[in-house]
Computed example of a mutant assay.
Amino acid sequence: MTDAAQTAPARSRRMTGLGTVLVFLYAVMALAATGRSVVQIIERFAEAPVPYTLSAAAAIVYVLATVALLVSKSPTWYRIAWIAVCFELAGVLIVGTLSWAVPDIFHAEATVWTLYGSGYFWVPLVLPFLGIWWLVTHRPPRAV
């Protein structure tokens, strides 16, 4: 072992196990939602501007949540992760409920969050709960 390795403080990794899987899932959802919203907006925006705008908003939220969870060791990014994950949960619950109760508002599976994310095997419904659990159990250390 080198002298530098002996004197360097031990680093604790926050992204291990479930945290790594969680960030991976958020990254996949970010790519899927971004691709879907870009295609929808370019090809059919006039058909359903509200759902397609919501798809773009979902994509932004997934990108932000991915980055924030990845660097959530910082108190600022930890707060941003909380905001993104809670916004995602609210979005999937509100859009999911409206698309079920009033299906005419949203065209068939027009957004990532339509019918609670059924087009994505309900991953959008489960993911924010996992994100909240992870954030609760992995708080960043407080500054002294």
Score class of each variant (00 low, 15 high):
residue 135 L to M: 12
residue 12 S to R: 15
residue 114 T to K: 00
residue 118 S to V: 06
residue 63 V to C: 09
residue 46 A to F: 03
residue 8 A to S: 09
residue 115 L to T: 00
residue 75 P to E: 05
residue 76 T to R: 13
residue 112 V to I: 02
residue 73 K to W: 07
residue 90 A to L: 10
residue 67 V to N: 00
residue 136 V to M: 14
residue 112 V to E: 07
residue 140 P to M: 08
residue 40 Q to T: 04
residue 114 T to H: 05
residue 83 I to P: 06
residue 111 T to P: 04
residue 107 H to Q: 10
residue 53 T to N: 06
residue 15 M to S: 06
residue 133 W to Q: 10
residue 139 R to P: 01
residue 23 V to N: 00
residue 98 L to M: 14
residue 129 F to P: 08
residue 17 G to A: 07
residue 71 V to D: 00
residue 78 Y to Q: 07
residue 28 V to Y: 02
residue 70 L to M: 07
residue 34 T to L: 11
residue 40 Q to F: 07
residue 107 H to I: 07
residue 87 F to M: 13
residue 70 L to H: 08
residue 20 T to A: 12
residue 96 G to S: 04
residue 130 L to G: 08
residue 35 G to D: 07
residue 28 V to T: 05
residue 102 V to F: 13
residue 75 P to T: 08
residue 142 R to C: 02
residue 126 V to P: 03
residue 104 D to E: 15
residue 122 W to I: 02
residue 20 T to Q: 06
residue 130 L to P: 11
residue 135 L to E: 13
residue 68 A to Y: 10
residue 25 L to E: 04
residue 125 L to N: 02
residue 37 S to E: 02
residue 94 I to Y: 01
residue 135 L to Y: 09
residue 103 P to K: 12
residue 80 I to P: 00
residue 96 G to R: 02
residue 127 L to K: 04
residue 126 V to I: 15
residue 72 S to I: 00
residue 79 R to C: 03
residue 91 G to H: 09
residue 98 L to K: 08
residue 15 M to I: 13
residue 101 A to I: 14
residue 92 V to N: 01
residue 137 T to C: 08
residue 73 K to Q: 08
residue 103 P to Y: 11
residue 25 L to W: 00
residue 40 Q to K: 10
residue 92 V to P: 03
residue 40 Q to Y: 06
residue 54 L to E: 07
residue 105 I to Q: 09
residue 75 P to I: 09
residue 6 Q to P: 01
residue 136 V to A: 12
residue 52 Y to A: 08
residue 122 W to Q: 03
residue 44 R to F: 06
residue 26 Y to V: 01
residue 129 F to K: 07
residue 35 G to T: 09
residue 117 G to T: 02
residue 11 R to E: 15
residue 110 A to N: 04
residue 88 E to T: 14
residue 127 L to G: 01
residue 18 L to Y: 06
residue 133 W to K: 11
residue 24 F to I: 12
residue 132 I to E: 13
residue 99 S to V: 12
residue 58 A to I: 02
residue 4 A to W: 03
residue 68 A to V: 11
residue 51 P to N: 04
residue 57 A to R: 05
